[in-house]
Design a protein around this nucleic acid. Structure first.
Lengths: 202, 202
DNA sequence: TGTTTTATTGAACAGCGTTCAATACATTTG
DNA sequence: CAAATGTATTGAACGCTGTTCAATAAAACA
């Protein structure tokens, strides 16, 4: 049955075509400002057809959300070769911040958009969870080498992620204005340096 | 001219009536889900009249944004009597987190909603700035007593705020799911405790 | 009283996410 | 090949959104 095979492939291609259009519009205008009609006209189709290939806008969100995490994880895995876990942790934080700076829209999607990521079955949830596990293990490695010995691994992971996310979130939602006379780059870089300074004493 | 006086008062009352309706609907449904028609029907007026008293939805946002900051600042000023600046700083962080937990919608509005807070003339910007200055001075006090001596005050303030904001932002946008088997309260409280633990070593 | 100012309404516009009957096309069946 | 079936796409429609505006009501002034 080569025909049904081709049909499936064509359907998959259409799904991808929609996703490509969605990504393009969304990287230009941000997720909130991206409408189904925008996406459709980007790929020269009618808006209705999207609903034949996707349940709703939320499913497109899920896909791009997953894309964002894969992109971030790919950049983080570059650091796998760094042997010292604490050096790897510090570099991971820097990579995370850099990712937010270079992919503001993806970052918004992944961590700041109001969207039901509820159903724990979704693969989007799983990939986020695996990222957390990765961080958890990394910090455990640091602890095994004597760092942060008196801290609970889970809570410390949460705190570390929060601190970095806070930097990125203030940046992504334009809440850095109140820190006068400092560029975003200066704030984020030197702010993170302060955190690292603290970590080195723990 | 008692009449123009009364007119002005009535106009102010109408402004307040709209704001009260807006606050109520927005505390029930969240800012994004609050429409002008919702607000209008809440106070039994037509939607159009809002535009006679407010420029647009953004101006209502500005007002509620300011309200949120005033509420937060009021709670922070309770700590003014704490003499030791480091104790005050630690308590301020806890108060901040508690504020986010108890006023999720205000917090979203203040720090997470996508909205042009651009024009540096707005009083909303000023109140945010004064909050930052307050934090800056508090940290400077700590430094004067020997804490965080090797840190730049500005960047350290930014880092501290970021760390706490990160905790609150993950909570407010429901991104804590990936930390299994821990309630939000546990995560936030113990996560912050980890930060405090680090600070005590700095 | 008549005129001008001020406040409010309700309809309208363009856009949103989503649904659905109609339609065109591809494939399978008779 | 023709008819029937299934699959993909369209475009109109629904009820929502923020916003504008002519018409209108009410109040203040002359």
């Amino acid at each position: 049955m080569g025909i049904t095979e081709r049909k499936q492939r064509e359907k998959q291609e259409m799904r991808q075509r929609i996703l490509n259009g969605a990504r393009k519009v969304f990287l230009q205008n941000g997720y909130e400002q991206t409408s189904m009609r925008n996406i459709a006209s980007e790929i020269s189709y009618s808006a209705g057809v999207i609903y034949f290939h996707f349940k709703d806008k939320g499913e497109i969100f899920q896909e791009l959300h997953k894309e964002g995490f894969n992109l971030l994880l790919k950049q983080l895995h570059v650091l796998d070769s760094v042997v010292d876990p604490f050096e790897r942790l510090k570099a991971a934080g820097r990579t995370f911040i850099q990712f937010a700076q270079e992919n503001k829209d993806y970052y918004n999607l992944m961590f700041l958009v109001e969207e039901p990521l509820k159903n724990s079955e979704g693969s989007g949830f799983q990939i986020a969870q695996s990222a957390i596990n990765h961080l958890h293990n990394l910090i455990k490695e640091c602890q095994d080498k004597g760092r942060f010995k008196d801290m609970d691994t889970d809570y410390f992971s949460f705190m570390f992620l929060s601190a970095i996310h806070g930097i990125c979130a203030l940046f992504c939602k334009d809440r850095t204005v109140a820190f006068a006379n400092r560029t975003n780059e200066e704030l984020m870089e030197n702010g993170y340096a302060c955190l690292v300074n603290l970590l080195e004493k723990g």
